[in-house]
Design a binder for these strands. Structure first.
Length: 425
RNA sequence: GGAGCGUUGGCAGAGUGGUAAUGCAGCGGAUUGCUAAUCCGUGACCGUGUUAUAGCGGUCCAUAGGUUCGAGUCCUAUACGCUCCGCCA
């Protein structure tokens, strides 16, 4: 969430942020409520001070009765004002939770993903001297999945990988985890079951009403738990209510977890192949740092994902997501998209986000700065790799005429030294 | 699932109805000057105030209620942790 003091002092910046991110602008209502809340605080606090003064005289007074009566009377007056204060504060809080994060000045302004900007392109889409197969044909002919069977027994938007494809998926995850560990990330195997409040604290949803997430998040019936859509949720709360030491920052985590999403807004999209499921696996990069370190860390974790693309020998591009596409809690966002030959298009494999102090304010994660003061941490996150989606460009880009798939060099040690899988044996 | 114990500042840790001890760390200051020590100050959040400080006031002892003139302390519920029992990959 955004600091009320910042809104007081910079209402125009906040109004502009609401406009370019397509969120309702409640700034004027917030400022009016804030003014009234402060008035009520002054009134109740003055009366409370008066009451405290009398209460403190009671133990030593010879005639206690009149003091007790007076204290009781002031107490009743305070209760009336407190009721209005509580109402107004709740109202103010609700509006504050609907104020989006201020986007970075260098983020492109735009309405939706049509206004995103490509900032660089690395590698060339492969040229095949045969008719390349789409992912589903490669998977079928190599017996690497069983979509009809799994659909029948588990329902839509589920998948299974079999044989060498399952091995390759695990090898990619292991490769990325080891790479991140070597770059100073602490590996965390995260739970997927969590409390709704934990999801809310990651700041993807606006407002204070937890039921807004029911559309996107699987709730577990007859419990107070739900399933997290990403390890970011857990990593974001790992230091909630703690005070970190500035000298320990940045703290870098590589989280791994199964991820669960309803995909309610994607009905009919990507129903074939390995792109979009209710459950998938993801390695996630997550950073705690000072606001001053944030831009450098953004480049660091973006670069890590780009390196993974290069290690997987995939043509890819980096996108600067526009203000309207980046979401509620973000300062800036860069999607990394790999080349999907079957779609003749680049498609998202990862998303790198700077959150500023927005999440840390919700989780109350602070650090003791060099000057002794307390500050909210800045947080960032990026995909490490997501499976099985990442398998699609790997098998499509590296396929051979016989339906076999060349294994990228860096993965070969994790595949028992094999250089290719599948095809006619 | 059952029983017991616990939750106080960054950390450790006192506090049995009347203004939350103390130690360590961090930060600020003073002093000494062989690289460290000694002394003093300093909890967080909010309101008010200030160019900025200071000052003044309020709140905070896991969370939410309750009793009371007054609650860290008494009562109720919940969350989390630990120990033991049961079950279990």
């Amino acid at each position: 969430m955004i600091d009320i003091k910042f809104i007081r002092e910079n209402p125009d910046i906040v109004k502009n942020a609401c406009a370019v991110k397509n969120f309702a602008d409640n700034v004027d209502d917030i400022l009016a409520l804030d003014k009234r809340v402060r008035e009520l605080k002054t009134i109740t606090q003055t009366k409370t001070a008066e009451k405290n003064k009398i209460t403190r005289e009671i133990p030593t007074a010879t005639d206690k009765a009149p003091l007790i009566a007076q204290s009781k009377k002031i107490g009743e007056e305070i209760a009336a004002d407190m009721a209005e204060l509580a109402d107004k504060e709740a109202e103010l809080n609700e509006l504050l939770h609907c104020v989006p994060q201020i986007p970075s000045a260098d983020a492109p302004i735009g309405r939706d993903d049509g206004d995103n900007v490509e900032i660089r392109r690395v590698g060339e889409p492969p040229k095949f001297d045969f008719t390349p197969r789409a992912q589903w044909d490669l998977l079928d002919m190599n017996n690497w999945w069983a979509p009809e069977k799994i659909g029948e027994i588990c329902g839509t938007r589920t998948y299974c990988l079999m044989g060498e494809a399952a091995e390759l998926s695990l090898a990619i995850q292991t490769y990325v985890i080891q790479k991140l560990i070597s770059k100073g990330f602490r590996f965390v195997e995260c739970p997927s079951i969590t409390k709704p409040q934990t999801i809310f604290n990651a700041g993807h949803f606006k407002g204070s009403d937890l039921s807004v997430m029911n559309n996107d998040v699987f709730m577990l019936t007859d419990t107070d738990r739900c399933l997290a859509g990403t390890a970011e949720i857990i990593l974001n709360s790992l230091h909630a209510d703690e005070v970190l030491n500035e000298k320990d920052l940045p703290i870098k985590y590589a989280g791994f977890s199964p991820c669960f999403r309803k995909e309610a807004g994607a009905a009919g999209r990507d129903t074939r192949g390995l792109v979009r499921f209710h459950q998938f696996n993801k390695v996630e990069q997550y950073i705690y740092c000072t606001p001053e370190q944030s831009d450098e860390m953004h480049e660091h974790i973006l670069n890590n994902l780009c390196e993974v693309m290069e290690d997987l020998e995939l043509p890819y591009r980096v996108i600067a997501n526009c203000t309207g596409d980046m979401g509620f809690n973000k300062v800036k966002m860069n999607d990394v998209e790999a080349w999907f030959p079957s779609e003749n298009a680049y498609r998202e494999l990862g998303s790198c986000s700077s959150i500023g102090q927005f999440q840390a304010r919700r989780t109350n994660t602070r650090y003791r700065a060099g000057d002794g003061t307390l500050q909210f941490c800045a947080t960032l996150n990026n995909t490490g790799i997501a499976l099985p989606r990442a398998l699609v460009p790997v098998i499509e880009n590296h396929q051979n005429a016989d339906g076999s798939v060349n294994i990228p060099k860096k993965l070969q040690p994790l595949m028992g030294g094999r250089t290719k899988i599948g095809g006619k044996h």
